[in-house]
Amino acid sequence: GQVNVNNTTYTFPTPKLAKEFAQKAAKKYNLTVHVSGNTVTVK
C-alpha cells in the first residue's frame, strides 16, 4: 500500500500497515485520511 503525506509517498508491504501509518499521520498533523483504490492520501 502507498501513503501520500505532504507530497511525500511512503510504500508499505501490506495495505494494513499503510492504513495504520496513515491514521497515525492524520492524527499527528490533524489531517484527514482519503482512500482511493490502493493509495491513501493524508491531507
Rank of each mutant, 00 (worst) to 15 (best):
K24E: 07
V5N: 11
K16Q: 13
K27S: 08
V33K: 00
K16I: 07
F12D: 01
K28E: 10
A18W: 01
G37Y: 03
Y29Q: 07
N30E: 05
T39M: 08
L17Q: 11
K24P: 00
P15M: 10
F21L: 01
Y10K: 03
Y29L: 08
A25P: 00
K28N: 09
A18V: 01
N38E: 03
T39V: 12
N7K: 14
T8L: 14
N6E: 10
A18K: 00
N38V: 08
Q23N: 09
N30D: 06
A18R: 00
P15V: 13
Q2H: 12
P13I: 05
T39P: 00
N6P: 10
A26K: 14
F12Y: 02
H34L: 14
L31T: 07
T11N: 06
K27Q: 10
E20H: 07
Q23A: 13
K43N: 10
T41Y: 08
F12K: 00
E20T: 05
V35P: 01
G37M: 04
Q23Y: 10
A25C: 14
F21M: 03
Q23L: 10
V33N: 00
P13W: 04
V40Y: 04
A22D: 00
A18L: 01
L31D: 05
Q2E: 11
P15K: 10
F21R: 01
T41S: 05
T11W: 14
K28D: 10
T9N: 05
G37N: 05
T8G: 08
V5F: 12
K43A: 11
K19I: 11
A25T: 12
K28G: 04
T39K: 09
T14A: 02
G37F: 04
F12V: 00
K27A: 09
K19L: 14
V40K: 00
L17F: 04
K19S: 07
T11S: 06
F21Q: 01
K28I: 12
T8R: 15
A26T: 09
T39Y: 04
T32P: 05
K43Q: 14
T39N: 05
V3E: 12
V35Q: 05
V42M: 05
N7F: 15
S36V: 14
G37D: 04
S36I: 12
Y10N: 02
K19R: 13
K28T: 05
K16S: 09
Y29A: 08
T14L: 03
T14R: 02
T32C: 12
V35F: 03
N6M: 14
G1W: 07
K24Y: 14
T8D: 09
N4W: 05
V3Y: 06
P13H: 05
V40Q: 00
T9I: 13
G1V: 13
T11H: 10
G37V: 03
V33Q: 01
K19W: 15
K27M: 09
A18N: 00
K28Q: 10
N4I: 12
N30F: 08
K43E: 14
T39F: 04
G1L: 12
N6D: 09
F21K: 01
G1H: 12
T32W: 07
T8Q: 09
K24V: 11
Q23M: 11
L17C: 09
L31S: 04
S36C: 09
T8N: 09
F12A: 01
Q23E: 14
H34Y: 13
T11L: 07
N30T: 04
A22T: 01
Y10Q: 02
K16H: 09
N38R: 13
K24H: 11
Q23I: 12
T14F: 03
K27E: 12
Q2I: 12
Q23D: 13
V35E: 02
T11E: 08
G37I: 02
A25D: 01
A25L: 15
V5H: 13
A26V: 11
T41L: 06
V33F: 08
K27R: 09
K16D: 11
S36E: 13
G1P: 13
V33L: 06
L17Y: 04
P13M: 06
V5G: 13
K24N: 08
T11Y: 14
N6L: 14
S36T: 09
A22K: 02
T32F: 05
V40E: 00
Y29G: 09
T32Y: 05
E20G: 04
V3H: 13
A22F: 02
K16E: 14
L17T: 04
A18Q: 00
V33P: 03
P15F: 10
V3W: 05
Q2S: 13
T8Y: 15
L17P: 00
S36L: 10
K19E: 13
T41A: 03
T41V: 10
F12I: 00
K28H: 10
K28M: 13
T14S: 10
V40R: 00
E20L: 14
V40H: 00
L17K: 08
Q2G: 11
K28F: 13
S36F: 09
K24I: 14
V33M: 05
A26G: 05
H34V: 15
L31W: 13
P15N: 11
V33D: 00
K27N: 08
T11K: 07
A26I: 10
T8A: 08
G1I: 13
Q2Y: 08
S36W: 07
E20W: 14
K28V: 09
A18F: 01
N6I: 14
Q2W: 07
N4L: 10
Q2T: 13
N30A: 07
K19P: 00
S36G: 03
A25E: 03
T8M: 12
A26N: 05
F12P: 01
V40M: 02
T14V: 02
T8S: 08
P13F: 04
K19N: 10
A22L: 02
A18T: 01
T11I: 13
N4T: 13
K24W: 15
N30S: 06
K24G: 04
N38P: 03
K27F: 07
N30Q: 07
K19M: 14
T8F: 15
Y29R: 08
V42Y: 03
V40L: 02
K27D: 08
G1D: 11
T8C: 15
N30K: 09
H34E: 14
P13N: 06
V42F: 07
T39R: 08
K27P: 03
Y10S: 02
T41W: 06
E20N: 07
V35S: 02
K24Q: 11
K43S: 15
Y29H: 10
T11P: 02
T9F: 07
A18H: 00
S36N: 11
N38T: 09
P15R: 06
N6V: 14
Y10P: 01
K19H: 11
L17V: 04
V5W: 12
N30Y: 09
G1M: 13
V42L: 08
A18I: 01
K16A: 12
V40W: 03
A22I: 02
F12G: 01
V42S: 01
N30P: 04
P15E: 14
A25I: 15
T41F: 07
Y10E: 02
E20M: 12
G1N: 12
N4G: 11
H34M: 13
K19F: 13
N4F: 09
L17S: 06
V35R: 05
T14H: 04
T9A: 05
K28Y: 15
A22Y: 02
K19V: 09
Y29W: 11
Q23P: 00
N30H: 13
V35C: 04
E20P: 00
K16F: 06
N6W: 15
T9V: 14
T41H: 05
P13L: 08
N7M: 15
K43T: 15
V40S: 00
N30L: 06
V3D: 12
N30W: 14
T9G: 03
T32V: 13
V33S: 03
H34Q: 11
G37P: 00
A25R: 03
F21V: 02
T11R: 07
A25F: 15
A18S: 01
T32A: 09
V42K: 01
A25H: 06
H34S: 14
Q2N: 12
Q23F: 08
Y29S: 08
V42E: 00
S36D: 13
P13D: 09
T14P: 00
F21A: 03
K43I: 15
A25G: 02
H34G: 04
V3T: 12
V42W: 04
Q23K: 14
Y29F: 08
K16W: 05
L17A: 12
Y29N: 07
F21G: 01
T9H: 07
N4R: 12
K28P: 01
T39A: 05
P15H: 14
T32H: 09
S36R: 08
N6A: 11
Y29T: 08
H34N: 07
N7H: 15
V3C: 13
V40D: 00
T32Q: 10
Q2D: 11
K16P: 02
V42D: 00
V35M: 04
N4M: 10
V40I: 04
A26S: 09
L17H: 06
A22E: 02
Y29K: 09
A18G: 01
N7E: 15
V40F: 03
T39Q: 09
Y10G: 01
T9P: 02
V42T: 02
